[in-house]
């Protein structure tokens, strides 16, 4: 069950978090302004190349789920607008949102994010809070999955749908929040963390040549996309 081979960090993993964040945010914002499918395809193509370089692999089932989701929203949009181009663009815009900034989350480890955030005026506690969300979201999501399993096992003894959601999911999740808070607070303080205290840095983050190249490539993709939207074809 345990992987004994680490996935090697790619050039995308080594980029400065702010570089990835900036590109993702700009692409998300630009996607909102584009309505030609081809223009959106340029942005989406760039993001898919980045995902491939980062060796982010999705299972066939995950690809199928994403495809199904995009098909559903595209179909619903078509039924509302009766415009194939509009519906396709709508789905592609979603696809850009699904890839643009989440790449940051998938290819940035919490330590890099803490360091990057500590270079901003954000309070240390807030930077740590963001790290904790990234770090513990998968754990709590797994706990929620187990709560749903426990609710399934209880069957009708758990009551109707509303009671199953309330007692079977919301109440346990509320307790989970408190339990996690107590344990993580203690763990942080036992390791010497205090929000107001200065910290040194094991491996300082530096933007390098890779960041420049990546930003330039992203800028080029954005320019091409904008040209396709407003000038070309």
């Amino acid at each position: 069950m345990f992987l004994h081979q680490d996935t090697p960090a790619t050039i995308i993993h080594r980029l400065h978090p702010f570089t990835k964040m900036a590109v993702g945010t700009v692409f998300s914002g630009l996607a909102l302004c584009l309505y030609r499918p081809l223009a959106l395809a340029v942005l989406l193509g760039f993001m898919l190349v980045v995902l491939a370089v980062a060796r982010v692999r999705l299972s066939p089932r995950q690809w199928f789920s994403i495809g199904l989701f995009l098909s559903v929203i595209s179909t619903l949009n078509f039924l509302a607008s009766h415009d194939t181009c509009h519906a396709t663009a709508y789905a592609m815009r979603f696809a850009v949102f699904l890839t643009a900034v989440p790449i940051l989350a998938l290819t940035t480890d919490p330590r890099q994010m803490t360091q990057a955030l500590s270079q901003t005026p954000l309070p240390g506690g807030l930077a740590m809070a963001l790290i904790l969300v990234w770090r513990f979201f998968p754990l709590m999501a797994e706990e929620a999955r187990q709560m749903r399993q426990a609710a399934l096992l209880r069957g009708s003894a758990a009551g109707g749908v509303a009671m199953r959601i309330y007692r079977g999911m919301l109440v346990p999740l509320a307790f989970c929040v408190i339990d996690y808070t107590d344990r993580i607070t203690l763990a942080l303080e036992l390791r010497g963390f205090t929000p107001a205290q200065r910290r040194t840095c094991h491996r300082p983050l530096k933007a390098g040549a890779a960041d420049v190249v990546f930003s330039a490539a992203a800028l080029l993709a954005a320019i091409v996309s904008a040209w396709v939207q407003w000038e070309g074809f």
């Binding site: 330590r111 390791r191 205090t194 205290q197 910290r199 040194t200 491996r203």
Partner: peptide, 17 residues
């Protein structure tokens, strides 16, 4: 609180400056 072993051990060292 981190992803890698070396970073995890360094976390406490960073907190204690």
């Amino acid at each position: 609180f981190t992803e890698r072993v070396s970073d995890e051990i360094a976390f406490g060292l960073e907190n204690f400056c």
